[in-house]
């Protein structure tokens, strides 16, 4: 019986090409009988899920699970502590504000600065609310914080563009900025020495570039995080950039707050009135040459 069947099969292969096994020339037909082991399908399915995940998914998960919230917590606790001890040890720089006054910031400068200051403060506060959300229990308060974050971002962007343009020419690096960096702007001594700086010192220039260019990058990456336009790996990359850059900007924001509110007496007043005393300029902005 078996032999007859085999003979019939051989005969069939010789006569007719409709017998699939016998032709063997068309791989598609061969696969239709046996599409391969089921493990091959599982490997393909795994590629659909974890293949994509391995790109930035693992990195993002680890960074967000273990690093980001800790970096921000570190910054908002340690940086103020450092400044507190700086204030105790070295104290504020005081200048005589009774002498000649120089018109340093015009009205446009000040309005733009304060719009940016207000919106940036909102961004920092609401951003920290999201990152450190566990401490506040999450829920509606933090969700509203996210809404404020979006509103503040648009407001900040509308002030960052004119700010970038109005101060750009004063913000290019100069050779004396290196010297300023070496002596750390003379902030580590309580004695008053003449510091090499133009209209803005090297620290202010760093803050300017980080706040404007960094701000534009934050807006770009933030747009993706808000809109979720783009594939998931793009979003992960945007979230990573947004968090790292945000940490750097938060640190310098705190430094700027300390300098303007505490470290240099009368600094806040100059951004309100627009005037700086000649004595302060002679020391902290010694290379500043006002145009008359």
């Amino acid at each position: 019986m078996k032999a007859i069947l085999i003979v019939a099969l051989i005969a069939a292969t010789g006569i007719s090409t409709s017998v699939v096994y016998a032709t063997g020339t068309d791989p598609m037909l061969a696969r239709s009988i046996d599409a391969g082991p089921i493990t091959a399908s599982w490997i393909q399915f795994n590629e659909v899920f974890t293949g994509n995940w391995q790109q930035y998914g693992e990195l993002f998960t680890n960074l967000q699970a273990y690093l980001f919230s800790r970096i921000f917590l570190f910054i908002v606790t340690l940086v103020p502590v450092i400044f507190f001890f700086h204030y105790l040890a070295i104290g504020p720089k005081k200048f005589d504000h009774s002498g000649q006054q120089v018109y340093y910031f015009n009205l446009f400068n000040r309005i733009i600065h304060w719009v940016a200051a207000f919106s940036f403060s909102l961004l920092v506060i609401t951003g920290l609310l999201v990152i450190l959300g566990k401490m506040f229990g999450g829920g509606a308060v933090i969700m509203n914080g996210r809404s404020v974050h979006i509103f503040a971002a648009v407001l900040f962007l509308s002030s960052a563009v004119p700010m970038f343009l109005m101060w750009l020419k004063n913000m290019f690096p100069a050779f004396y900025d290196i010297k300023w960096m070496i002596i750390m702007g003379d902030y580590l001594s309580s004695k008053t020495k003449v510091v090499p700086a133009g209209k803005f010192n090297a620290g202010q220039k760093m803050w300017f570039w980080l706040a404007t260019m960094g701000g534009f990058v934050m807006a770009y990456t933030g747009f993706y995080l808000w809109s979720f336009r783009g594939d998931v790996d793009t979003l992960r990359l945007m979230a990573i950039i947004h968090n790292f850059l945000g940490a750097a900007m938060t640190a310098l924001f705190l430094a700027h707050l300390y300098m303007s509110l505490f470290a240099i007496a009368g600094s806040l007043g100059s951004m309100l009135s627009g005037y700086k005393s000649q004595e302060e300029i002679n020391i902290l902005h010694s290379r500043y040459k006002p145009k008359h």
Binding site: F49, T50, N52, W53, G57, F60, T61, Q64, V130, G133, G137, G138, G139, A140, I142, M143, G145, R146, S147, I150, F151, L225, W226, S227, F228, V232, L235, R236, A239
Partner: peptide, 30 residues
């Protein structure tokens, strides 16, 4: 859902695309 703030990080962490977000919050947020 009463604790969730809709940040979307779980969506980025998930290999399977499981977390989903309804739109329509203020300023177009999730």
């Amino acid at each position: 859902k009463k604790t969730c703030i809709g940040c979307g990080y779980c969506f980025m962490a998930c290999p399977f695309g499981a977390p989903q977000f309804p739109g329509g919050q203020v300023f177009g947020a999730r």
